[in-house]
Amino acid sequence: MSETILDVQHLTHQFRLTKHTTIRAVDDVSFQLQRGEIFGLVGESGSGKSTVARCIMNLYRPAGGRIFYRGVNVCDPKQYRMHKNMLQTTRQMIFQDSTSSLNQRMTVADIIMEPMAINHIAPPGGSLRAEAERQLHDVGMDASYLNKYPPELSGGMRQRVAIARALSMEPDFIVADEPIASLDVSIQAQIINLFKHLQAEHGFTFLFIAHDLAVVKYLCDRVGVMCHGKLVEIAPAAELFAHPAHPYTKLLLSAVPIPDPRLERARVLQTFDPSDLQDTGEMREICRDHFARMPVEGVPH
């Protein structure tokens, strides 16, 4: 029934900061994505979420571990070359910071059409331009923006152009790194509904990285929590939000802001002892499909 589309095994990646210091940005991270699921990756700023995403999309070559996409080991240069076309057309990435990923000298229409043109894809709706217009419409912008350049758009509009560009390829698998943080709540809702629709109708698989946990709770089927380069907990979304097990997950959930001024101002920030977050344990299943990195003794539930 379920088919593993992405299999990340013991992924490790480090960056050299200075001659003497390296940062272990990603440290022995393993998880699998099933076809058609939306998997949320949340956690500390700087915990390595974007680095995981970039390794998966071949933007970084991991220092260790293996990544299989549809059975192809994407880190293996030979296999990558053999399946390059499939890898480029069926996977798309939406970046955290789309402003720098859009070509400032191309019009919105050209930006959206470019991947289809490069890959010689004949759009179902006739001309490339008509297809670009349809994609733009899906993200809540009308045809009058087709001839504009990125600097003439607001931040949220640029982000939506980046989303439209990625979706125009009708990919099977989308890595979306903070795709909607810069959008207003109504457009956010529209894009979330669009993602849900693409999942339900076309079986798209998403790796969705976000800081907005209310969105993650609503959108994602399963969630992984990262802290200090490690995956510390992984569980179905409802289970994770109801029964967080790892101390860092508990801290994170306690910090979710409430859109209510009296409640939110009264909320006291929890402080934590970083030594609680020391990696003392192993990833273990604490109940069905719910894994947490726990010390050997203190298994909860």
Partner: peptide, 14 residues
């Protein structure tokens, strides 16, 4: 202008 959008919620609140 959106000063905390790219921060995790614990740091955001801080």
């Amino acid at each position: 202008d959106e000063p905390t959008t790219s921060l995790d919620v614990t740091i955001q609140a801080q």
